[in-house]
């Protein structure tokens, strides 16, 4: 079971699995005994089938468009956003859109190439759980989530950019 870091730096375990996009001709392999994140477009394609199932969430890859589920986000218990490589910064924009534009209120999880030094950016953009890449030292996560005690900008975490706090 993966360790999941929460925004406050605590660690808990859960058994959500990320179901990869099936190859051509194959079907989605959803486990029967575990909650699962499936590709968002496939969830939408099977929409009626999955509604009300709190064991099913979705994940977006970095090139996906979160707009496709704009009006349905709060039907999902968990959304994952994949960082295929940590230098691919699209996931930050996806997260802010889900939170600030579509009003997503449930858990938003960073998955994939998630490293320590990006955690605070992720938190500021609205992620509230993080599955660290397996080789990284989870005991450093709390520190890395809080390198900075404040930021200059408004983001998902605050409506008050520094210029509004100073005024």
């Amino acid at each position: 079971m993966p360790d999941v870091i929460k925004a406050d730096g605590s660690v808990r375990q859960d058994n959500w699995v990320v179901v990869p996009r099936p190859e051509e001709g194959e079907s989605l392999a959803i486990p029967s005994d575990q909650p699962a994140l499936i590709p968002a477009d496939l969830w939408l394609a099977g929409y009626g089938h999955f509604t009300g199932n709190d064991q099913i969430g979705v994940w977006f890859d970095s090139h996906d468009e979160p707009e496709i589920i704009a009006d349905k986000v709060n039907e999902l218990p968990l959304i994952g956003v994949n960082f295929p490589r940590f230098v691919d910064g699209r996931g930050y924009s996806i997260a802010r859109l889900l939170r600030e534009r579509f009003g997503y209120r449930n858990e938003l999880r960073a998955i994939g190439d998630v490293l320590l030094d990006q955690l605070q950016f992720m938190k500021r953009c609205g992620f509230d759980s993080y599955v660290l890449r397996a080789d990284k030292d989870i005991s450093q996560a709390a520190k890395c989530l809080n390198f900075f005690s404040q930021g200059y900008q408004a983001a998902t975490d605050t409506d008050l950019p520094l210029f509004r706090r100073r005024a």
């Binding site: 940590f86 230098v87 691919d88 910064g89 930050y92 924009s93 802010r96 990006q118 605070q120 950016f121 992720m122 500021r124 953009c125 900075f148 930021g151 200059y152 900008q153 983001a155 950019p161 520094l162 210029f163």
Partner: peptide
């Protein structure tokens, strides 16, 4: 200076 502050450690745009 306003742009400097806005762009400094901007959480969304550190990996363009």
């Amino acid at each position: 200076e306003i742009i400097r502050q806005w762009s400094t450690f901007h959480p969304e745009f550190a990996f363009l």
